[in-house]
Design a protein around this nucleic acid. Sequence first.
DNA 1: CGCCTATTTGATCTGATTCAAACAATGTGG
DNA 2: CCACATTGTTTGAATCAGATCAAATAGGCG
Lengths: 242, 242
Amino acid sequence: MPTTSFTRKLESIASLSAEEKEAIRKLPAHVMAIKADQDIARQGDRPFRTCFIVEGVACTYKIARESRRQIVGFQFRGDAPDLQSIHLPTLDISIATLTPSVIGFIQHAHLHELCIRMPGVATALWRHCLIDAAVFREWMTSIGQRSARGRISHLLCEIYVRSRAVGLAQDTKIPFPITQLEIGDALGISAVHVNRSVQYLRRNKLIALSDGTLEILDWPGLQREGDFSDEYLNLSEYFPPK
Amino acid sequence: MPTTSFTRKLESIASLSAEEKEAIRKLPAHVMAIKADQDIARQGDRPFRTCFIVEGVACTYKIARESRRQIVGFQFRGDAPDLQSIHLPTLDISIATLTPSVIGFIQHAHLHELCIRMPGVATALWRHCLIDAAVFREWMTSIGQRSARGRISHLLCEIYVRSRAVGLAQDTKIPFPITQLEIGDALGISAVHVNRSVQYLRRNKLIALSDGTLEILDWPGLQREGDFSDEYLNLSEYFPPK
DNA sequence: CGCCTATTTGATCTGATTCAAACAATGTGG
DNA sequence: CCACATTGTTTGAATCAGATCAAATAGGCG
């Protein structure tokens, strides 16, 4: 079932009864394969349904003056990039795939109905929105206060932990299809400077990054470099790498 | 009633029936006067109640490495800085007053009960959380992509519109008790540079700012300078200045 | 093979930081 | 009511992190 990824994500951030899980899994979902670098939705849209990632990686972004792009989030398996549209009709962000992806869509009407029928599901969805917001706050702190190296290290830590939480990690390795340009757009750094910073992290044996794979070589070191602590992610279960 | 400010805020972002408004107004609230520059709650706390601003101005902030402070939001009359704690038990932010303030507190239990009894109230509260998140996204975009001048102009526009929406504006003037240091901490700019940028805005007759009062002299010009559009605030009613 | 996108390197420039000090405004206690 | 402490604003000078511009190199893929 495509909704399994969504259920698993919600499970990783809230406690759900077996009935609730089953109800979410049974939500009627429309599923679609989408190529890389395609917009799924655009700023200003008024969607009648919410999307979630079944497979692949997506990002949400806003455009500021002079077509400068701020990526405001990365979404992995199970994440719902526009869950907010349940109660905010007009999108203030655009959503795009970064890799070839499989995207699921659930109509708002079905979610509303389920929220009334099972308040525990409403709580889980609300929590999903609140954790998104906690991540935004952490990113603001990163962009506003940390050095380029710190920001990049912090982001890599976050993506590693989140990937792990939804079963995408193999040992200390995760798939990492995000380009350096995209990292720059997410962190308010130029791509050139991202490159130089990544090289620094490689030189210092904190990470290995190539061929779309990120390997954590020195987890404590990377956390220190990025001033990272995973609390803001509010994961209900979390297995740190050895 | 102290809860009137909170009700008015929710009214400004969601449509509530007379019964719902009345129910919110009747929520048992504990009220407290607090001096300026006091923490109301701290990162790591697990509050059993939510606070809201009856009078005064507060901010929420996070501390990054080397005690650098990122202010992640300003709160005015009616705002609930830690509404998230309804479903996220541990606070990832600290909350502090910026001026002498009157703060109201409502127990989570009462909010939960009301959410079940009146789903419209749940929607309004959820919307409050979602609009907070939309503001975070806009701030990220500001901090990540806009120049110092742009960031400051954008912030002034936002505060002006929000103050107006809860009845704090007189014509083109609003109370503005936020220091330049605090602006800097909110926007990732040093206080010195904030000062020079504010002087630029003054020189160019976009604003007048002194004695705790901000006057908008050239609204279109300030919006242009800050690349500002109010859509992300999701106000249900909005009266632009003439 | 050749096109396109991503990464890398080098050189130069600049917006913003930092440090330091003066100045203004406000409040406090004697 | 004044001396003084405190906090916020302003100015100047030196410095730097990161941007920009330009071009080379490397990978992936039809």
